[in-house]
Design a protein around this nucleic acid. Structure first.
Lengths: 109, 109
DNA sequence: CTTGTTGCCATAGACAAGCTATGGCAGTAA
DNA sequence: TTACTGCCATAGCTTGTCTATGGCAACAAG
């Protein structure tokens, strides 16, 4: 019973949304936050998380800077840029549009 | 303004569900049915539809037989198999599980 | 002190499943 | 006979996930 299967395309939405709500987090915290907020359903693997963050960096939706954890460990802290905030609202409306349409199709007769 | 972007993994669900409700359809009708039921949002391209139907055939979720359209055209009619019906319920519950988790994460504070 | 465990970052390669582009054929209408 | 629509199908590209792997630092246990 694997708790994964995050639909391709929705991971960036989840990350952007998580950052928008918490301000500044490092990668591990992002994954933990998503896992917890989803009721332990959406487990973001590290091999998915870091490539996704790289993409977000390249596209300019987030910025990053190195810092130190409460546990005294090296970590990279991410935050939303202005462009990222714009992107988030775009992805949100796209998500609702598509999934609304799917649930409409799935309604019983 | 492209009306596409069906999330990977959900196309088979849409097809199986459409067949489950209409009994027997050919490919073109399936695409039309999904387009209409989604309020013209989910446009299934032929290059997505037929490979998807091939996959469903190979896995045994659907069966197919050649026939003739009302418009007197050659067409391949698809219907759900028993295994396909089982698969549909599995994909439905998986979809709701994941989708519910995502919307939970996206809830405003 | 060294071994194991956890926190944290990152990349390479495999793979699934969508999209675009292309092609073909058969009715029907202009 | 030309054009358009209905209908099926494949090849190749691309996106974005997953698995597997690796590394390094802090801290606890033995």
């Amino acid at each position: 019973m694997k708790p994964n299967d995050i639909p391709p395309g929705s991971l960036s939405l989840l990350i952007l949304n998580t950052l928008s709500r918490h301000g500044e987090l490092h990668g591990y915290e992002i994954a933990e936050s998503i896992l917890h907020a989803s009721g332990d359903v959406l487990q973001v693997e590290e091999g998915s998380l870091y490539p996704a963050l790289q993409r977000l960096l390249v596209q300019g939706w987030v910025s990053a800077e190195w810092g130190t954890t409460a546990g005294n460990r090296r970590a990279r802290y991410y935050r939303l840029t202005a462009a990222g905030r714009k992107q988030l609202t775009a992805e949100l409306s796209h998500f609702h549009r598509i999934y609304g349409a799917i649930t409409a199709v799935l309604q019983p007769a």
